[in-house]
Each structure stands twice: as C-alpha cells, then as structure tokens.
Write a protein that binds this DNA or RNA. Structure first.
Lengths: 130, 130, 130, 130
DNA sequence: GTGGTCTAGACCACG
DNA sequence: GTGGTCTAGACCACT
C-alpha cells in the first residue's frame, strides 16, 4: 500500500493545499482509517521532497479541522473519515457536486453512459472493506 | 448566455489561475468560440470584482500561449478552441474530473453505490438533443 | 492611542498565543473596532520586536476564526468584536468565568468589596463609546 | 479535598507550566501547606494523565526554586507557602486575574455594567465566615 | 507595499 | 524520535 501521493511543484495550487487534498483523498479512499498513524512530519517531508515545516502546517490545519489528532511526542493519527457538517448539509453538498460533475462532463462532450462507465471503473481502486 | 464564472477570493488557488481556468472552461464548453470577443479587461475586472491588473496579466499570458489575440484599440478575441482541448486532452480532463468527484463524494461519507445511484438518477433530466 | 501590547519573550506561553491574546484584548476593550485596519504584518513585527512570520501566523489564525479579514495586497481588518458561539453559550461561559474569578480572588484573601472595587477601577481604561 | 487540577492537553501553555501553575495555585489557596506531602511523581502523572517524566521535571524545578523539598525514599513536601505569595505578589496576581476576567468577559460581548452586575449578584452566595 | 508560501535550520516540550 | 515554535530570508500574488 502506498501512503504517498503526487506533488506538483509547478502547480499554481500551493503545496500545502495539494498535501491536504492528498491526505483527504487517502482517507476518503479508505487507505487511511480511523486511529491509524500518519507518516511522521519528517518522513512525509522526505516522501514528498518538500520542507518539513510545510507538512507540519498541513497536519496542524487538519487537526484544527478535526480530521487529525496529534499526540505530543508520539505522532499524528486519523480521527474520523472527514465528517464535515451535518448530514443534511452533506447531502446538499453531495447533490451539488454530482450535478456539477455531470454538467461539466457532458459539456466536455462525453455521453451519459461514458460517465457512468468512468465512475464504475474506479471502484476497484477503493478499499473501504479491506 | 453568461460569459462570467465564479471567483473564490479565499481559495488557495490564486486568482490568476482561477481566471485562466474560467476562460479555458468557457472555451472548452463552447461558450466562447474562435473569433469571439472577450469582455474588456476592465469589464471583466468589474464582473469578477477584482483588480484590473490581475485580469490584464491573465489576458497577456493567454495571448502568449496563443489562445487569445489582442487587437489594440479593439478588444481581445479567441484565436482557437484551446489546443489543450483536443480529444486526448478532453479525455484527460474528464478523468481528472471524475476522480475528484469520487474523492469529494467519498470524503462526504457517501458510499460508492450511493454515488453511482445519484448519477444514474439524473439521467432522466438530461436533454439528449442538447 | 497605543495599538501595541507587551510581549514576554521568556514566558512559557508561546509568542503567537500572547499576540492573539493581545489583539483580542484590544478588540474587547474597544481600541480596535469593526472595519478598522490592523498594523501591517511587518509593522506589528517591528512593534513587538519579533519575526514577521510569527505575526502572519496569528493574523491567519484569527482570520480562520472569523475575527480578522485580510484583503490581499491591501491589509488586515477587524471583522467583528469576537462573537464566538451563540448567545446562550456565551452567557454560560460568562457565568463560569465570573464564578471562577470570584473564587480565585477570594481564595487569594481579597474581600468581596475589594473585588468589586478592582473591577470598577478598570472602567476608565475602556473606550467602547469612542 | 481534591489535590489535583485540570490539565488542558491542547492549550498553548506547555504541560510543565500548567503543572507548576496548578501546584502554586494549590499552595496559594491554602490547600497545600508547609510540610504537607505532594502526590508522588507517578501518582501525579496518573492523576493528570501525562508522562511521569514531565511531572518529575516540574518537581525538580520547584525544588530548585525552594518551593518543594524531596526526601529520597520518602516523598516530596512543601517547604514554604511560596514566597511569591507575599502580600505584594498576591496583589499583583489578583490584578492580573481581574484584568484577564474583564478582557474575557468583554470579548464575550458583555458590557461593563453587566459584568459589575454579575459579580455583585454573587455576593449573596458568599459565606463570610468561610 | 500588502499578505501568502516556502525553505533551512535552530531550539523546545514531550514520551 | 515526535510534533511545536521561532527566526531569517527568499520569492510570489495582488492592489
């Protein structure tokens, strides 16, 4: 299992945002689960070939948001699978997401069936039940 | 038809990248076509509620890339339908879209099956003759 | 009017926490009001004789908490007088605060009248009404 | 009587400072007096749910300052009622307390008069003969 | 000139 | 060895 992800040093999206997105993705895909330990700040910095302070900033932000929990002198751990707001809010946000995805995909010229096909084909990369 | 798009002042993605992405999107979706005129720098700045210099820099950059062409004293025009939007590139963009959609949806706590279900349920709203 | 406050370099309380507390205090006492601009990051760093990054960290944190609002390329401004939670929560927190203050003061050997006297004597330093 | 106090693992004030402050507080309030024994390092660590090394460092530091005295194989004892707690020092601590209380209350949105009112209203609960 | 991002490297608190 | 704090200084995005 690969706990890392790609960082694009020349992307306009700042490194810290790419890391945050990467970690959220690992959690969302079930590659990191509640209670599991993340690579240490310094390990992650080496993995991503960036400065440790940048990683520390992300860990701190994700702790603020309740996604991670750091234990001083021990390490950094996943708390929960990114719960966000109330169930109703999550439902509304999800509907907006799927409508936008569908609109964007269709306007790129893909058919409805191609869209369903693409989503379905990604199922094998997800290990929720692992 | 609305030639504008949304700018998120608090997004980590810099304004210039949001504007560039917005314009490329309008082209990709066919809302701006070869030869068509863009809003002037100042109009666009007012539309997006940002500083005109920022818009000017994006126009200049897109002109460098050959996507726009400025005619002094006349305006700024689309030159071609964004070479990035060849079939291969559209495919890549679509894959990125669907991966991001899946990540975001999973991180909101929805299961893979719920996601497929949601997309499928929107089929009836689609106008095939669009 | 003095927009600064004291920083104790040898306090166990980290600098950033002292600055945050100082700014909250200025707001609470009405010395900084809604819409007013804070000293720039670099000015504040000079005033407090600390590194600008440390000030920037505090401004960013207070923006996260909704106390400050930064406008890129312009400066940092007060949004609201530290609203915190709902009215009911604030009331409860206030009651706890005043009970703790009273208990601590009494156990230091001060009389009830001395306590009232001390609070009253601080009224002259507060300028809510400008 | 409860010889413990609260530790906030997520406070910016380091654990060792919280412990030192807690012990000084117990002495200032007369809950620990000259000659009395403190919980052992390990007992205190369990009470506070922190690592014993951290407690040991505080005990050592307070022994350095002459506030505690460790008798090997016996335990740790209060030597004097904390010289910091002379009349002048108690006065200073009280002033800090009341300033902090005022700042915190104002920042919760309560007016000066409401604060005075709240303190006054607690007079009837005070046992003068305590 | 404003705030934001990143690096490199030191030192501290904690286990 | 773990994360946290701070500094110094570079470069970027924005007005």
């Amino acid at each position: 299992m690969n706990l890392s992800f790609d960082i694009d040093q020349s992307s306009p999206l700042p490194l810290y945002a790419q890391i945050e997105q990467g970690i959220r993705g690992l959690i969302a895909r079930g590659k990191l689960r509640e209670g599991e330990q993340l690579p240490t700040v310094r390990e992650m910095a080496v993995l991503l070939r960036i400065n440790a302070n940048t990683v520390a900033k992300v860990y701190a932000e994700l702790e603020n948001k309740g996604i991670l929990k750091t234990k001083r002198g021990v390490g950094t751990f996943i708390t929960k699978p990114d719960p966000k707001e109330s169930k109703r809010d999550r439902k509304r946000e999800f509907i907006e997401l799927s409508e936008k995805f569908l609109t964007d995909s269709l306007s790129l010229g893909f058919s409805f069936d191609e869209i369903i096909q693409s989503i379905s084909s990604q199922k094998k990369f997800i290990n929720k039940g692992g």
